[in-house]
Amino acid sequence: MDTSSAGIQEPFDLIRLSLNERVFVKLRGDRELTGVLHAYDGHMNLIMSAVEETIMIVDPAEGGQGSVNYVKRKMDMLFVRGDGVILVSPPSRT
């Protein structure tokens, strides 16, 4: 990654520098993804490969203390529609 010549001036630069790197994506509906980023656009539509999705499902059990379940799923190559994206975080996280 060439950080020196192409510095980070605006938010999207951070995503640009994450191309071909594993990124963490938080989505609406208690979903998270990790995967290698290959494309994005100004809507934050993404194309990623080797994706692992984690869905958080809260079981509202009796007594007010619900248990949290995580469901995981793997997908080879995935287009993610930008309107569901909350954040994209560069490699450092995992």
Binding site: M75, D76, M77, L78, F79, R81
Partner: peptide, 8 residues
Amino acid sequence: VRYVQIPA
């Protein structure tokens, strides 16, 4: 659409 899974 939420996702589209495409052939790698």
